[in-house]
Every structure is written in C-alpha cells, then in structure tokens.
Design a protein around this nucleic acid. Structure first.
Lengths: 630, 630
DNA sequence: TAATGAGGTCACAAGGTCAG
DNA sequence: CTGACCTTGTGACCTCATTA
C-alpha cells in the first residue's frame, strides 16, 4: 500500500476558492510577511485578502482544515498529508512531509534528546491526527520510521525537476484511483493466489503507489532507519492477520499464501468449516469481543445514557488504530500477536512476515519522498481512496463515489462504501457522524470535511479490509474473475459489515456502541439527528439476532450475502450463481441440522436478505446526503 | 461544516475596542488584575493587557466568580460559556468550550472509566452551574452530548483564521441578540427551565451556536419534556409487538375480510385460492394477454427492430387510457367488465367498498388526493401523489419525493413510485422515457416536463390501481392499520409491478414490450440511453420466469413481496410479520407440492426478494435523476 | 530574489495536584 | 469528589538561513 512511497499522502483540494492563499505554495506567506505578524498569515479575513482576490489570484485555497494554514503543502491542488499522522503536511520537514505538529514534536525530541516514557500498550500504537498525542514513544518511533532525520533535511527551494516529477506522480496517482477501484483491487490481488502475481507484487495498492519505488526510495533518507521502515506510513495498515502465511516482502511473491483457498470446488466441500475459520480469522472485533454476542460483555446501560464501554470499546478502538496506520512491521506484528501465536515482529524482514504483501511496508524505502514519489502515502491501501480527494464539488469525498458513473453505478456507488454511516447534522450547528463504525458520533468541529472523512474512514478501514480478507478465503471466491470479485465486494461489503457489527446495536437496551467504545442510547442519537436509518438498523439487528444463529451459521450466511449473482455489473453471473447456490445449500443443511424443530428459520434468514438490501440503499442515501451537504 | 463555531455560549463582556484585540485570549488579565489577586495564572502576564484595563473596559460581568481567574476564555470582550453547564469557559477542552469544572469532571470520567450511579430522576437533568454536581450521570451524559471527546482535543494555539471566524460569529450573535430579543425570548422559554439564573447561562446564544441544540435534543428538552425523555424516537419501537391486534380503523372493521386475527390465519387457509383470484381479478394486462407468459402471443421480433404488436398492445393501450384519467365510475367499471364477474365497482359507493378508504381508488373522486388538487389528472388515488406537482424546482415530479424529508424518507421515497421508469436522455437532445410502463419510449418533444410526466403517469396509473385492489383482497391485509397498509403499498407497489410485468421483458429475444404495444430491442433501448437498470430488469425477469411458476404461485409470491415487515415506517411490525409468515408458509407449501423434485425452487424464489429491492432502489435513483435533470 | 524549511515563540490545552 | 491552579506539552506562526 501504501505506496507509501510516494511518500506522502495526498488529497485533492480544490482550486478555486477564494480563500486565501493563492497559489500552490501558499504564498500565504507573503501576505503574512507583509502584514507582519500581527496579522496572521494567510488570514483571509483580513482585508488583505481582498486585494488578493481582486488580483484575480487563483485562490487556491485549500479548504482544508486544520491546517488551513498557509503552511499547507500543496501542489496543483493536491495536498500532501503528514507521513506520521496523516494530518495535512505543512512542508517537507526532516526529510519527510509532515505537519507542523509532528515537525515540532520531532524537533523537540531530537533537540532535547528526550526519552519518552514507555508505551503503555504494545509500542505499536497507530499514529493518527486525533491520537498522536496519546503516546509519545510511538509517535517518535513513527517519526523515525517514516524517515524523519536531521540528516535528511533539505533546505532551500524545491528543485524544479523534482517538483515536476512529484506533480506528475501525484496526478497519476489520483487518476488511477479515480479510474479504478484500486483499493479493492489491491486488496484482492494482493492475496489472490494466482494470477495476481501481477504487478507490484504485493501489495499494496496497485493503484499507484507502486511498490517498486520503494526501493528507490531508499536512497534517501530514511534508509537509515531500520529496515523495517517501510516506506511509508502505509504499512501500517496491512498488518492484518494471516496468521500463517508470512510473506516475504519483496522478493518472492507469495510462497506461503498459496494454501488458502485452494480451489473453489474443494472449498465447497469443506465449505462450512473453512468459511467459519475464515470468518474467525478475519473478524477481529468479534474475537476481541470474546463472543459474538455483544451484549455479553458490555455493561448494560439503562436506555438513555451513554456509557463508556471500557474494555471492549477500547480494545476495538485500539485495534483499529493499530491496524491502520502503523506501517511498521511490528505494528503489523503486533496486530497479529493478539490472534496469533506467531513470534512475529522479530524484524522487518523477519521470518514471519506475513505473506500478505500489502502489509509489506517493511521495505526500507526509507524516504519516500526522497525518491521522488509523490504518492499518497498514507493511503494505506485498499481503502485509501477514501482519503483521496476527489474532484467532486461536494468537497472531499471518497473518490469511488464517482467512479460508478450513472445509474448502474448507483448500486455500486452506494455499496462501495465500507462503513455504515449516517452523517447528520443535529438541530444546531453541531455536526455528528452517527455511524457506529465511527469511533464516536461527535465530529471535531474544527476539522474540514476532508479531515472528518479521513478520520472516519480510518475507523472502518480495518473492518473493510477484514471483509476483503474473508471474501478471499471463501472457497471458490478467488476462482471468480477479478472483476466480479471486485463487484461483489463493492456491492456487498456494507451488508457484510452490517451483519458482522449487528452486535453493536443492543436492541434490548436500545443503545448503540460505537467503535470508540462508547455506548449511546437511541434517544441520544436521535437527539443528535439520527433518523429512520437508525431504526432500521436496530430492527435488522433484532431480527437477525433473534434467529440465534451460531457463528458457523452466521459466517456461512455472510458468505451468501456477499456472493449474490444479482449484484449489478457481474460479468459471469452463472459462476456467481452457482457458487451462491452451493453456499446456500450448505447453509440450509447446516441450519436444518442445528435447528431441527425450527423449520422456518432458514426462510426467515433468507428474508433478511431483502432487508439488507434496503439498509444498503438507505445507507447509500445517507452517504449521498453527506456528500451533498458537505 | 463545522460551523461549529464557536460552539460555545457567549456572553458579552466589554464592548469596546476592537482593539482589545490582542486581546483575544487572555486579557483576562485585566479583569483579573483588577479584581483580585494577580494570581499567577496568567503568567505571561503580558504587558499588553494592561492597556485594556486602562481602557476602562466594562469587564462584563463575568458573573461567576470562578471566572475571575484568568482562565476565562474571552474573545474581544465576549466571554465563552461552558457548553455543559453554562459557567464561564476556561478554554476549549476535549473539543468543547468548557469550564474547569466540567473539564476536570470529564477527564476523571474517561480516565477512570467511571460508571456513575443512575440518575434519580429521568436521566434528563438540566445541567447548570449551580446544580452541575447533583447528578453525575446526567452531567457526564451532557458532556458527551455536547461533544466532549478524547478524539476532539485540540492542542496548540488557535488558528488565526478560526479565531477570526469565531469572533465574527460571536459578534453577529451578539448583534442578533441586541436587535431582537424576541429570539432570546423564545430561546429561553423554549429551553430554560426557569428563570435562568444567570443570564448568559445556558440558554445560549440565540445567535447561532446555541447550545440548545443540544438541549433541545436532550438537555433542555429534558427538563421540559416528559420524564421518559424520549423525544420522538421511541415510538417507533413500541408498535412492535402486538402481532395479532390488527387495529380496525374506523368503525366497521372489515366487512369482507372480517375475521381479524384469524384474518391472517384464516386467510392463510384459503389464502391460496383467494389470492390467486384476487390476482386474476386485478391484473388486467395479464388477462388480456391471454397467458401470463408474454412470449406466447407476441410475435417474435428479431432483436434490433421494433414492431408493433397489433392487438394486444392496442387493447392494452386503450384500456389504460380509459382507466386512467377517468376517475369516473364507469371508467372503472368498464375496466372491470372485462375480467370480472364481481359486481364490485359498480359505483363509488358500491357495496363492496372496502372499509379502507385509502384504497378506494374506485371511488370517483374520492381519491383522497384528488380533492383540491389541481393535479394533473389522474390522481387516482393512493398513488396520486405521484402525480402531484410539487414545488420542487425540478418541475413536476412526484410530490412524495418530498414529503419524506430526510433520511427516513428516502426509503419511502424511492419505493413510493408506481411505475418502473427509466427516464433517460439519449445521446442527442432527444428525450426518451425508457420505461415499459410508458406507452412508448419516445417523448413528445413539444411537451413540457409536466406534460410528459402526466402522460407517463397515465400509462401506469391503472396498473398501480390494480395493485392496490389486489392488496385489499389479500386475506389479512385490511386488518392491518391504514397507516401500515399505505406504507406497504408505497414501498412495495413498484416491486409488485415488476413481477406482474416481468413478461414485458423478453429475455430470449432481448426485447422489451412497452404498454403501447411496441417491442423494442435491448440494443435500441440502449442506444436511446438505457443503462444498467434495463439490464437488471432483464436479469430479474429471466430469473423469475426461469422458475416456471404457475399463476397461483406467482400471485402468492406477489403477496409475500408486498407484505414485508421490514419496510420502513411500519407501525405494527408484528402484524405484518405474522401475515407475511402465513403467506410464506402457504407459498412454500404450494411450491413444494407443485415442484416435488425441484427442492431449491422455493429458496431461489426467495432470493428474488433482495433482487427486487435492488431494482426498487435503482428505480428510485432513476426517478431522482429524472427529477434532477428535469 | 524567491521559495522553503529549521528553529524559536508563545498561545493554549491535557493532566496532575491538593485544599475544600 | 470538585475544581482552581500548575506543569508539561503542543502546534500555529514567525524569523531567518539556505538554496535554486
């Protein structure tokens, strides 16, 4: 993924705005300088601006947020993100594109040679904008990992040719993303046993970031860092599991991985067993939770109040965090350790490397940028697109919302999104993102739309990735054409997530637990602006849970949901249909065996399918609304 | 987005000079200095402050004592108040302007993950400075509600532009206040429980940020609201249970369907028979066609060319015309004579009139919608709304698209439409309305949008009316509440039509027969602009027809489609669910009886349900697109 | 000369403390 | 427990050195 390489993650901003800083680089500077301190720099508010405007300056402006500052590093409308935390970068600091915060943090760290106190967790905290201040040790480690170093400093203006190159790369990266659902692709490919070998190997997002660079990357800087260092941030994500297979990064593609699903057919045979296993291996939330039934551990709360669900929530949150950003190998490892016995993290190239390349952040590439690659780094991968800026007028929004195109797309569009959202504005001007897949319904008001989305996408990225992993392990899935694999995932991921996270909705208590760990009563969420979608989700969860299915049955059901021949855009309908039939047969057999006297249970389960479709659609509408309002 | 704005409540302090400028922050100093001990805090003690003081600023009232400290967050003389309790805020803590007390309280709460003991009242205590310590549970809840979160922390100095913005907003807020107290009034009344101890207090600023949002949501509301506090939300839920009770609408329950509870049951008994009969009686197209299988009579056409289907088409067309616009009794009558024996509709008030008025499409004007409405014609009734013009800028479009409003609506919106459309513009400037329920894909270019829609609606109105008629005859349907009957029809009519008219799509020949009687090849339609929706419709038709169901089975299936408990907005979910279960049982029985060696057929049929949902949604999108483009 | 980043500055908030 | 005060960091802005 992460293309890391590129070093930086990029985001598209728009170009037009009136805002202040004109021009790419933000001249904000000047302005400020002119004005001098008192004023602020790019203040737009100031009178000053006007003049600019009058001048007919481009006004680039980056809407973005936070950084809004002039100090945003922007090239041709593309905003570079901090390799450490993903915030908007203010420039190339210590050899890496970084935000003011990480720059200052790193400076203080090296200047004073501070020894931060030990990480309270696994020393593999994922570093994101919102949590970057929670663990200094890990933040510093991340800085080093992405290649920050006093030795990498580059002074003076950027050489033209480099700028040019960077620009081109970014552009193409964006284009790729726009054009192909890279992410899904990458995800799939990454693993896919066969064909895939393609490209860049592993990993990552095919789209753009291209791995290769990685090497080159090295040169620059970071190399110094540890081997692991994978290029960029990206790595972080990958970590995912794959218990067994550890892939060797670079070189050999996927030795190990081979085993997975082997054939489809075979698969069907032992379908049940393998599916269940796949489910367990790819559903961390579940694992951590201890039991699939959510209620189990959470403390019950009387309706109407939110409560912090200590463990569970925290754990989940943490997990998400880890999986996401950490690029470092260990991170990955770490992620594993929980569910695996493997000795992991021994080292970047450690023997363990999981086969899944996507994760291979390990490569040393050291300084992404150094090599010139502009890629968006962070984008960790598959779903990175989420973070990519898009040209949509609405502002930043998952690029894929577009790729669909017309009608047909609609379906795809809607479904393509990973998490289940429900962005809403409460009565007042306070905004909420009422999706339990978000860490919390509250949105940092100081964030730009982009920032909000980015943060949000971070929260559900791991879950989406798990779904992809799960799919890949469904016997027969990888025998489908890549196109169809992608189509099915685009269309069905949301539904799978709804099933997997149905437990977040506690019908009895009338509460919803967010991934951040906090429980909110339905009333509270309604007060914040939740509408019927919430009700429908609750209803679905109730209907599903009421059936009392076992994990095995549930995983098979999930499979049936995902492998639906009637999804739009399927090329080889017959294959998908055949596969689904097989899966259904198994499901039916399993259910009739386990629930002898509840003859209607299988039928009832099938009736959840249309319900899921409806949810999927309502969800799409929510997303659309978000986009529009944004 | 975030307007977030200030987010805090503000209080006006001094007015004076803008100057204060620098003031922003702490000028608290001055005040403090004046007031009391110079204590430290304001360490830096900038000299600057002094000036302010010297200016003789009013120092507002900083009511609370507390405030005395320098830690008051003040901007340009405006003091920000704590969003939680209304005390003077000391800063922006955990994403919200809060006082030291609430900041500390929140910190302890999350750090130690404290579970406070249950509120002794309604869990909706109003949190104010003076009573904030009385109920921890409610205080914490309020903290969360206003958005306090670890994820929202903001470090470092406030970005200038943001400060600027905040200032402006506050200023305007103040102005608003000044100008019309009315607002204040209302605001206060609305929220403030009492007199409001201290002014600025909670109630917030009318101006904009108003905290009330919050309150309204809960807080304030809380106070005012009922104990349960649940604003509207709950309701939805309640309904749930009560399976049996089918409420009799007005007076006389149901003449015909009489036996209520049994209703469903009984219905089930003879369900099959009556449903089939109902189907035949209410599906004219079918009758005329001679046989359900379309291909039968139509002359096959080689793909690519359209051809006029003489008889059939004409007849249908004619019939449609009649039924449509005329709401007049005879129209209706006329329609009947052909296929029915029933005396029914002899007149509006015919003996048969089902008690359910909404359905009375039969009645002449009765149509609820018709009255008063200038509507274009037909409003035949239940679905008339479709035709109601709406104020939307897009021109005429089914009014219902609006009535829904937000999210929730979406579902309804989408489904509510009766015919299946696919309005598209072909490549050129020629417009087409590619819906087989239209008489022809061609649109009279000289017609206005309104005219086009009107004409189109004419074509499918009768079919919609028939669906309503059919529904009324489903055993148990009329025992449902009127609300639910309407909801089910709004949501399911399109799906029923898709099933009924699946025969218009000839998969083998790859042609689509429009109600006008002309057949068009898929290629032709594509050339005219049809997209994936067409493909999906073809696929569905194929999947459905392939099952080779009898008319009896098909009618029962239609029933199952219509009576779906998971449709949004259903009040008495249990009743609907019970009814659907009964119907499904019959359907299953029937199918297993008729197709002994095709065990999977029932399952396959159920898999059409999600497919129908998807079509329904795609259709909604088409409609929306039509509306937007219009 | 202009673009650009290292470093410095200091407004600001998280957390810790401890008297009340 | 609460919350006024402190301490410790953070990071938005600035200045100034460095390089194209």
């Amino acid at each position: 993924m992460e293309s890391t390489k590129a070093g930086g993650v990029i985001a598209y901003i728009s170009s037009s705005s009136p805002e202040s800083c004109h021009s790419d680089s933000n001249d904000c500077y000047n302005s400020s300088s002119l004005t001098h301190n008192s004023s602020h720099s790019c203040r737009q508010g100031n009178v000053v601006d006007t003049p600019l405007t009058m001048l007919g300056l481009p006004l680039a402006h980056t809407t973005s947020k936070t950084s809004a500052k002039c100090s945003i590093t922007k090239i041709n409308g593309l905003v570079l993100l901090c390799k450490v935390c993903g915030d908007i970068a203010s420039g190339f600091h210590y050899g890496v594109h970084a935000c003011e915060g990480c720059k200052g943090f790193f400076r203080r760290s090296i200047q004073q040679n501070i020894q931060y106190k030990k990480c309270l967790k696994n020393e593999s905290c994922a570093i994101m904008r919102i949590n970057r201040n929670r663990c200094q040790q890990c933040r510093f480690k991340k800085c080093l990992l992405v290649g920050m170093s006093k030795d990498s400093v580059r002074f003076g203006r950027i050489p033209k040719r480099e700028k040019q190159r960077m620009l081109l790369e970014m552009q193409s990266a964006v284009n790729n993303m726009m054009n192909n659902n890279s992410q899904l692709h990458s995800q799939l490919h990454g693993n896919t046993p066969l064909p895939l070998a393609n490209q860049p190997q592993v990993p990552a997002c095919p789209g753009e970031p291209r791995p290769q660079d990685v090497d080159s990357g090295l040169g620059s800087a970071s190399s110094s860092t540890s081997p692991t260092a994978s290029p960029g941030s990206n790595q972080s994500e990958e970590p995912k599991h794959h218990p067994e297979s550890a892939v060797a990064m670079d070189t050999s593609p996927s030795p190990i991985s081979a085993s997975p699903s082997s054939g489809s057919d075979r698969g069907s045979e032992d379908g049940i067993g393998s599916v269940t296993r796949a489910h367990q291996e790819t559903f961390m939330y579940n694992q951590k939770q201890g039991s699939p039934s959510p209620q189990s551990d959470a403390q019950q709360t009387s309706p109407g109040e939110e409560q912090h669900v200590s463990d569970t929530g925290k754990r989940i949150e943490e997990r998400n965090r880890n999986q996401q950003n950490d690029l470092s190998p260990f991170t990955a490892t770490q992620a594993h350790d929980q569910a695996q016995e493997r000795p992991t993290n021994t080292g970047p190239q450690g023997p363990d490397r999981h086969h899944c390349q996507e994760n291979d952040t390990t490569t040393p590439s050291h300084c992404p940028y150094s090599r010139g690659t502009p890629t968006p780094t962070q984008n960790q991968c598959p779903y990175s697109r989420d973070r990519l800026p898009n040209s949509s007028p609405s502002g930043y929004f998952p690029a894929y919302t577009h790729h669909g195109g017309n009608n047909s797309t609609s379906q795809a569009t809607s479904n393509s999104h990973g998490g289940f959202t429900g962005p809403l504005w409460s009565g007042g001007n306070r905004m909420h993102l009422l999706c339990p897949m978000n860490t919390s319904p509250h949105v940092n008001p100081h964030k730009s739309g982009h920032g909000i989305w980015e943060e949000f996408s971070h929260s559900f990225t791991p879950a989406v990735r798990e779904v992809v992993e799960f799919a890949k392990q469904i016997p027969g899935f990888s025998d489908l054409s890549q196109h169809d694999q992608v189509s099915l995932l685009k269309a069905g991921t949301f539904e799978v997530l709804v099933i997997r996270f149905a437990s977040l909705f506690d019908v009895k208590d009338r509460t919803v637990t967010f991934l951040g760990g906090t429980k909110y009563s339905v009333e509270t969420l309604r007060a914040m602006g939740a509408g019927d979608f919430l009700t429908s989700m609750m209803d679905f969860s109730e209907n599903l849970m009421r059936l009392g299915l076992s994990e095995e049955e549930m995983s098979l059901f999930t499979t049936v949901v995902l492998i639906s021949a009637d999804r739009s855009g399927i090329e080889n309908v017959n294959s998908v249909e055949a596969l689904q039939e097989t899966l259904i047969r198994h499901l039916k057999g399993l259910i009739t065996k386990n629930h002898t006297n509840e003859s209607a249970i299988f039928t009832k389960l099938l009736l959840r399918l249309p319900e899921l479709r409806s949810l999927n659609n309502m969800h799409s509408e929510q997303l659309l609304a978000f986009k529009v309002h944004h």
